[in-house]
């Protein structure tokens, strides 16, 4: 990023919230192209693991827990690395995750009233 980016790091650096990031001198948001490829490979491996899980006949709760955990990790990896949230200002994180957690909260609550999570 050109001019804009300079503005962001310079002024950002004077804020305590992002002072830490300024130390990185922000080379490509702390990620190299090679790093992105590694992340993508991990994501692909997780996806393969997810799919193969469905072909093993695991007990229900282990299957669900593993699957949802892998999903959450994949989600967080794309958001943190590909979308740079890990290296960016915390305000972005706050804005995005407040939407995400609000969505999880209200819709889980609504589904609960439909007895969606009740066994049987």
């Amino acid at each position: 990023m050109s001019t804009e980016h300079v503005v962001v790091t310079e002024t950002g650096g004077s804020h305590d919230a992002v002072a830490r990031d300024a130390d990185h001198a922000e080379h490509e948001h702390g990620m190299t192209d090679k790093g992105y490829v590694v992340i993508a490979a991990i994501l692909a491996a997780f996806t393969a693991a997810e799919v193969s899980l469905t072909y093993m006949h695991l007990p229900g709760w282990i299957f669900m827990t593993t699957l949802l955990t892998i999903m959450a990790i994949k989600f967080a990896m794309v958001v943190s690395y590909f979308m740079h949230l890990k290296f960016d200002n915390k305000i972005f994180t706050a804005l995005f995750y407040s939407g995400l957690f609000l969505a999880i909260f209200v819709y889980s609550a609504a589904l609960t009233t439909f007895h969606f999570f009740s066994p049987g």
Binding site: V7, V8, I91, F96, S98, G99, L100, V106
Partner: peptide, 25 residues
């Protein structure tokens, strides 16, 4: 804040989209 207007707007829009897809899911 020292942050780009466009980027703030985009992140807010994505936060908002979470509730859209949450409802559909």
């Amino acid at each position: 804040t020292g942050l780009s207007n466009n980027k703030l707007a985009m992140w807010m829009f994505l936060g908002s989209e979470c509730l859209l897809f949450g409802g559909l899911i």
